[in-house]
Design a protein around this nucleic acid. Structure first.
Lengths: 223, 223
DNA sequence: GGATCTATTTTGATTTGTCAAAATCCATCC
DNA sequence: GGATGGATTTTGACAAATCAAAATAGATCC
């Protein structure tokens, strides 16, 4: 069975590969994500390649094999279902649950995972709006507009918050910016790098373009 | 923070110390419990002693320090609350949950532990009847009679099943021998090493003295 | 097309936890 | 009171994962 370190390398490779068109992940990005020095990543990736979990293209990067992707998706599924459990059942603060899930994702068995999934009603996304991989190994890759790129004035529904930092999530929570919330962009000042926002019946407030880009939104639908 | 290995050494030391009047645990017992060779236990115990978690009395054994006991109780509390959660909430088979909890006990934070404890209604024992250490670090050490030592004919309530082996728990479950069940010892044949038992309205059945000694019982009380 | 810069790899060392097997201690037994 | 035997400790080795720092490969820039 994969060690905790192996699971982490594979999970982060999957997450980084998602934002790269060809699925090739540079060594440096992986090392940064895992908070190890580059040499450590090289050593480990070579070992993963020997185990058939990744393909290593020296000096270019790595990509997951089918088996590596399978393992990575299973870990990600555990992570996101655990987060959902911690928020929906244990009522924990969504800013904390990422750190908790980083540990638990390596400790829960597939049997427990299945029970949790059933208890939670087979959710499609976690509390941050991140898609939960299915048992069969499919992962939604839907792309949405963000508060930095969407049309102004229209009513929009928040669908995903793509920054797991506790500080950012606490800020978002404080302004009601969690999946399901409805808001509209009042103004976007590019030179100043500011977006002005209003939630239903609340006071307008501003946030940076960088922060706004982390909030994914969709048009509000009937019902 | 304590590593997984350290937590396991301390937890098993606590469990073994409970069945020793002076709290001294022989090296060999610890090594057997942890499934390591004796030399490994010696090495590790010396390291634990350097960290102030145990006292090592060379060639005699080891005992927990106050700090070591504190850590061990916290791990044991996690283990038993997780087992309770897995059985009571996720409805898992009580024969499986010990193995699951062995992993999870090292991955759940104190914050999650507190929420779990509240969700479960602050239980005093786990599904096997093993006492759950309190947040304050107290652990019931109540001793009961067993089906191998109790009076015959009297109605008795099962309070604890002290063998976490999946096979044994499956056997016990099949005969309804879980905490709360009521049964009476019909006969005890010492030369044959057999105990004959009957649960309310069920057919009598026999089990070995060794097996009977693992089932703890108390007099049935009114209500 | 050579100098330079940056990302990556290599090298050597460290920590943690483990095993195999040899050495040692100590209680006990004649 | 020395031989025996079982538990414990010591010794030397190893695997996994990491870091620091030197070496190297590639891209880029005049």
């Amino acid at each position: 069975m994969a060690t905790i370190a192996v699971e982490n390398y594979l999970k982060h490779t999957l997450l980084l590969a998602q934002r790269s068109p060809d699925g090739l992940v540079p060594m440096g990005e992986l090392a940064t994500a895992l908070q190890v020095v580059p040499g450590t990543a090289t050593t480990m990736v070579k070992a993963l390649a020997d185990s058939g979990l990744v393909l290593h293209e020296p000096r270019r990067g790595l990509r997951l094999t089918v088996e590596g992707r399978r393992v990575a998706l299973n870990v990600l599924r555990k992570h996101r279902l655990v987060e959902t459990f911690l928020v929906n059942v244990l009522k924990m603060d969504w800013a904390q649950v990422h750190a908790e899930a980083e540990q638990l994702e390596h400790a829960i068995s597939d049997a427990v995972l299945d029970r949790l999934d059933a208890l939670l009603g087979h959710p499609a996304t976690d509390p941050h709006g991140d898609p939960i991989p299915s048992v069969e190994g499919t992962l939604s890759s839907a792309v949405y507009a963000t508060l930095a790129s969407c049309a102004t004035k229209a009513s929009l529904r928040v669908v995903r918050v793509t920054d797991q930092t506790a500080d950012f999530l606490t800020f978002a929570e404080a302004h009601g910016l969690r999946p399901g919330a409805v808001a509209q962009v009042l103004d976007r000042n590019l030179p100043a790098g500011l977006v002005t926002l209003r939630r239903l019946r609340s006071k307008p407030f501003a946030l940076s373009l960088a922060a706004a880009g982390k909030i994914w939104v969709a048009p509000v639908e009937a019902g």
